[in-house]
Design a protein around this nucleic acid. Structure first.
Lengths: 318, 318
DNA sequence: TTGTATGCGTTATCAA
DNA sequence: TTGATAACGCATACAA
């Protein structure tokens, strides 16, 4: 018992016994059994993180933010991959909750109703990331995808691209909100045309960007710019346009989303919408831990915003 | 007790009681406590996976392979991020082992001596991935980085690039072995020149590829091809050459490594060395599980090989 | 096929 | 400041 105390609250044990215990611990290579601890205490140091994809750069950046923040702390990150499936997410939430985690970080606003029930009854702190919206389960760190794509659309319009199109893949809830933002803004400007929107449920790749922009140009040849649902597609769009001899940015503008590192290096560099993925992971973790330690965050919802980063691919102003 | 049986070995319980139990389980929403289970049984269904990076596409593909193979099974994947640090890896191994995992999947051959000791004394199955080498702790699924870069180098030479260079970032053990392969093969052909090798410990990015190839061309302007330590660098190299008006593949050849999806879409498409990352993750998981179930794999070490994929960026043969 | 007794290694509680 | 005792919820071994 005194050993247990010594390891967790060293200040509640006398200097002398502390030293004795440490010596023995070292000699024996004693490591506490987390299972026994979890069973006795009814709680753990586990923070579960559920992302829709482990390969998508967007989420890997978020994960990295979490891992970097957690490094060296007593908190143990446990990662779940829902593969964009609300059902798999539900299973993961159930599994995680059975482990009595201290906290849960999960993506987005669109949980299944069963998952929602689980979360609302959960005895742990919860942070939703990637988006901002009403009614968080607990805390939230994200940004508005609608606003971000509206801003990007405005940028295209301001550069004089008056017949903008949109290409998207995957069509997860956040993609759909970005598409919605494009539509809203294009309609406001009176330039929305349904045949300038090309989407597919297939997972996003650079090659798919090539195909989608090809499709777009065949369906609506007068399109003079494209807002891409993400940077993979944008890079593909650039490659395809170059192959066809379509001059970027003079004849055709390209804007991506997320501002992955590679788009700045491209030729011409690609305009994109910067999002703060590392920060999102880091802040989600930090706020969660602070809440666990009794320091409630100033606000339940933190909007990290975004930045439209204009680059060569839309630099049309003469 | 009968409930415990019913949930784990349903065939050891009569049809009748099974139904009764299931009904009650459903009604109560009973979920077994994994901590109690772990404590009582002295083992878990956890398979720990330790990767050096969660952002590097190479490892995210491997992770995806593992997750896809594990989906729906009773095995629980737990991911650790060592961030290329042998010390963090050591901590992770210690943490994982304290949880009495059923298995451990970890990357490479270069563990710290302390980690090695831990692993050799570990009471769980172990799979090393990413590389092949002598003396596996237990099992191994990978390929030879030396052979792969030798083959890529030969490809460049066969295409008539007689003054090949090499650029590399990060310089983790696998990068170093690839560099070694290049050197070996270049020396064999009598075309090795130290000033045509440019490396940096910085993490690899596309932008860094631009910088490294710029550096290479200023240090050794007569270089007529570059083998890149990975595809990010290769894409950057392509961009930079295009900006400088260096004609690819006529004047200068570019070969990447890993065959990420994007390189095939580039313009010209980029030659690369295909590696089987998804398979690596999947097979590592499958063999681990089979071993746990008593079916020892045919061979302790599985070499998945690689394929040089020739593309436009080295298509020089007139 | 089912049930009983026992113990896994830790922590909460209370007493010394 | 330290220690004794009793859980925590499950699985092992054995008995019925």
């Amino acid at each position: 018992m005194t050993v247990s105390r010594a390891l967790r609250n060293p200040d509640k044990v006398s200097e002398k016994t502390l030293l004795k215990i440490k010596a023995v611990v070292d000699r024996l290579g004693y490591v506490p059994d987390p299972a026994a601890s979890a069973l006795a205490a009814g709680k753990t140091n586990v923070i579960g993180v559920i992302v829709p994809s482990v390969t998508n750069n967007v989420f890997s950046d978020v994960m990295r933010g979490v891992y970097e923040a957690a490094e060296g702390s007593k908190w143990q990150i446990q990662l779940g991959n829902s593969r964009y499936s609300p059902l798999e997410e539900e299973t993961l939430v159930r599994t995680f909750l059975s482990q009595k985690p201290a906290g849960l970080i999960l993506s987005g606003l669109d949980q299944s109703s069963e998952t929602s029930k689980l979360l609302m009854g959960a005895d742990c702190r919860i942070v939703q990331i990637m988006e901002c919206g009403p009614d968080p389960y607990d805390m939230m760190v994200g940004f508005s995808h609608v606003d971000a794509s509206r801003a990007a659309t405005r940028h295209l319009l301001e550069q004089g691209y008056d017949r903008p199109g949109y290409i998207a893949a995957r069509l997860d809830p956040r993609s759909q909100r970005r598409l919605k933002g494009f539509k809203t803004e294009a309609e406001l400007a009176g330039v929305y045309a349904p045949n300038r929107v090309v989407t597919t449920p297939r997972p996003s790749t650079v090659t798919l960007g090539c195909e989608l922009v090809a499709d777009l140009l065949s369906k609506a040849p007068d399109t003079n710019a494209v807002l891409c649902n993400n940077d993979d597609l944008a890079l593909g769009a650039l490659f395809e346009c170059q192959r066809r001899g379509v001059r970027i940015p003079e004849e055709f503008g390209i804007c991506g989303f997320n501002d992955l590192e590679m788009v700045a290096a491209a030729n011409p560099s690609i305009t994109s919408v910067r999002t703060f993925r590392l920060d999102m992971g880091r802040i989600a973790f930090e706020n969660l831990v602070e809440a666990l330690q009794g320091a409630e965050p100033q606000q339940k919802t933190i909007d990290l915003g975004f930045d439209v980063i204009p680059r060569g691919s839309t630099e049309r102003t003469a």
